[in-house]
Simulated assay, not measured.
Amino acid sequence: MILTKWLTSRRVDLLLGGSVTVAAVSGLVSWGVGSGWARWVTIIHALAGLSLLALAPFKLRGSVRTGLRRRRVTRWLSVLMGVLVLATVVLGILHATGLWHGVGYWSALWTHFLLAALLAPLVVWHIASRPGRPRVADLDRRTLIGGGAAVAAAGLAYGVQQLVVGDNRRFTGSHEIASFNPAEMPTTMWLNDRSPRVPVSDWELTIAGEPMALEALHARAAPLQADLDCTGGWWSRQSWDAVSLAELMPPVDAPTLEVTSLTGYSRLFPARDAGNLHLAVGYNGEPLRRGHGAPVRLVAPGRRGFWWVKWVSRIDPIDRPWWLQLPFPLE
């Protein structure tokens, strides 16, 4: 084949490095963004991942076969990296098609993300340890044609995948689960967060330094339909019994609102977004369940699930810029 002759080991490594980089960056962005433009980032992520599969045969025919013949001890690290790459891409496909959602807390998407994180240092080591590293001169017409062919093959595979999936996926790639059925909505926690066991009668909520009675929230709550889009790979639409923060907050000059959970988990929001942030005390006319944030949680339409702070205990106006925080909390 012409492509086999054109795509030398260095050219293949250059294309693989580009695909891995695009897949990693687009994956993180699509994982964290809940607005409509995330659809295009999700498509780019899919094309980058499927391009790795399209380029894999050229990698196997070239440097992989040569490297295994040399019988270096480090060849097993390279084999491990290849296995992890394959497993990561396959898990992504299984999640995207809905053929496998995972087991319990470990969804296919979470496992996909975990394997990608484990891959990062191996990819850096693999590139740094190669004697024949890709050069700028390798980015020539033949490389671009080969890369275009890989992307075209990825695009064809993505089109077939979308025919299989249908309309079940949201633009973030998440699958719909238990809409308007809160009893079946999954219960998930962010990293090491834990559900507090404090009686509702002892719950203390303060807004801008002033105590707020939960009874007052229940009295003012009104139905609000909003989609909770979890980074575990699912989304669910519920009718939340909620009150807008714009109705609860006094006039403040601070640029940022800090919403804090009783667990210590917190997120920062622009104060100007108070009208699109809500405190929910129930859904579909029934109280929240403890695993879903009872007795009061934040509802933040247009943001991914880790912004929807559970078990809210404080909302404080602060002077710190809202963007001065980790994009993905580590608590």
Rank of each mutant, 00 (worst) to 15 (best):
M1N: 10
I2P: 11
L3T: 11
L3Y: 10
T4M: 05
K5C: 01
T8K: 06
T8P: 02
R11Q: 11
R11A: 11
V12Y: 03
L14Y: 04
L16D: 12
G17M: 06
T21K: 01
T21W: 03
A24G: 04
S26P: 02
G27M: 03
V41G: 01
I43V: 14
L50T: 01
L53G: 12
A54P: 04
A56P: 00
L60M: 04
T66W: 00
G67S: 13
G67F: 12
G67W: 01
R71Y: 11
R75Q: 11
W76F: 12
L77N: 06
M81V: 01
G82I: 03
V85E: 06
A87H: 00
T88K: 04
T88W: 00
I93F: 05
L94N: 03
L94E: 13
H95V: 03
A96R: 02
H101L: 15
A108S: 08
F113A: 14
L114Y: 07
V124G: 08
W125D: 00
I127E: 02
R133V: 15
P134K: 02
V136C: 02
A137V: 11
D140G: 02
R141W: 08
R141G: 09
R142K: 08
T143E: 03
G146M: 01
G148L: 04
V151G: 03
A153I: 04
L156T: 14
Q161W: 04
Q161E: 08
G166C: 08
R169N: 02
H175C: 09
E176R: 10
I177A: 05
F180A: 10
A183D: 04
M185Y: 11
T188I: 06
L191A: 13
P199Y: 06
V200K: 14
S201N: 14
S201T: 15
W203E: 03
E210W: 07
E215N: 12
A216V: 10
A226T: 04
A226F: 04
D227Q: 10
D229S: 13
C230Q: 02
T231V: 15
T231K: 14
W235L: 05
Q238V: 09
A242R: 03
P250F: 08
V252Y: 09
P255C: 14
S261A: 13
G264R: 05
Y265P: 11
S266Y: 10
F269Y: 15
F269P: 03
P270K: 01
A274D: 12
V281C: 07
Y283L: 14
Y283H: 15
E286Y: 13
P287E: 06
G291H: 09
G293F: 05
R297K: 10
V299S: 09
R304T: 11
G305V: 06
F306T: 01
V309S: 02
K310C: 12
W311L: 08
V312Q: 06
S313Q: 14
R314I: 12
I315Y: 06
I315Q: 04
P317R: 08
W323E: 06
L324P: 07
F328H: 08
